[in-house]
């Protein structure tokens, strides 16, 4: 039986990692909520963010975490033409067309990454990414704490944006009834485009964090996509604080599952939990908190 320090560290790092996953899932969630699109390229956008961070460091020498706003803007800017030329023309055609288009974008981008960056595993090398942070018997990686702080700050900022600004009101209205919103003067296409860019930026920022904390390769995206889907369902669609909580719950339970059943069962615990929540609370575990 593992000792207290091991258990406590596992729980804490699970929670912290879950917070970062929450940010990635949030991007998927808002796009799903506003555009009714399960963005199958979300994981690839994450990888794109990681490469952007890596090359930013290589070319400028500046720390990519300090330049996160810039990187986020850059990645969001890349999403705009994708929306404009690939998704917008399919807006009237039901969800499958957009879904398949984003799937195609995902395989094209992944292929492009292999071609340009090779299939090698990369990591954004920062000295603080390998420092421990100890509190008595509990040790967690410092980068988890940094990543968690950044993720929570961004999630709260997005929550504020959606709950308390005019754009957020337009976003919620477009999600609920796009035709009615348009008739009231909301430029729904513009809202969707910005939402798509925001969702992509979430993936990109998450990718930079993952790149610094872990490692990535062109094919890393798939696992994060599946995890994000689980978190979206756990947290309730369109529920911003719920997504953060969902991420942390998933992280915690994966850690606990790993501790009790062995790490081979980490992902199984996550998937099984995901299915259970789906079956018993399809509207999301935390949906009751939704406004």
């Amino acid at each position: 039986m593992p000792d207290f320090g091991t258990v406590a560290s596992a729980i804490l790092s699970g929670l912290l990692l879950g917070g970062m996953m929450g940010l990635i899932a949030l991007g998927l969630s808002i796009v799903l909520g506003v555009m009714r699109l399960v963005n199958l390229a979300h994981g690839v956008f994450l990888v794109m963010g990681a490469y952007a961070g890596l090359y930013f460091l290589k070319l400028t020498g500046f720390d990519p975490l300090l330049a996160l706003p810039l990187l986020a803007l850059g990645i969001a800017a890349l999403a705009l033409p994708l929306y404009r030329y690939l998704l917008a023309p399919l807006a009237q055609r039901g969800p499958e067309a957009q879904l398949m288009t984003m799937f195609a974008v995902a395989i094209i981008l992944q292929n492009l990454f292999v071609f340009v960056f090779s299939a090698d595993t990369r990591s954004i090398e920062r000295s603080y990414a390998t420092l421990p942070l100890s509190l008595g018997a509990i040790t967690v990686p410092l980068i988890y704490v940094i990543g968690f702080a950044i993720a929570v700050a961004l999630i709260l900022a997005i929550h504020g944006l959606i709950a308390h600004t005019g754009f957020g009101r337009d976003l919620r209205a477009s999600a609920a009834d796009p035709a009615a919103a348009a008739t009231l003067g909301v430029n729904v296409q513009r809202v969707q485009m910005l939402t798509f860019a925001l969702g992509t930026a979430c993936a990109g920022v998450g990718g930079v964090l993952i790149g610094v904390a872990f490692q990535f390769s062109p094919s890393s995206g798939g696992a994060y996509l599946l995890n994000s889907l689980a978190i979206v369902v756990l947290g309730g669609l369109g529920n911003v604080p719920g997504t953060l909580a969902g991420g942390m719950i998933l992280g915690l339970l994966q850690s606990l599952g790993g501790l009790t059943l062995g790490d081979g069962y980490r992902d199984i615990v996550g998937m099984a939990l995901f299915l259970l929540v789906l079956v018993f609370r399809p509207e999301g575990f935390l949906a009751a908190r939704r406004a």
Partner: peptide, 28 residues
């Protein structure tokens, strides 16, 4: 597009009301 026409000063009180369920009365 519809939002342009709304910008020209035409409002439409739609059949079926089309209230946004996820928005408060005030935000609606």
């Amino acid at each position: 597009p519809a939002h342009d026409i709304a910008g020209l000063g035409i409002a439409h009180c739609m059949e079926g009301r089309r209230i946004f369920p996820t928005l408060s009365v005030r935000d609606n």
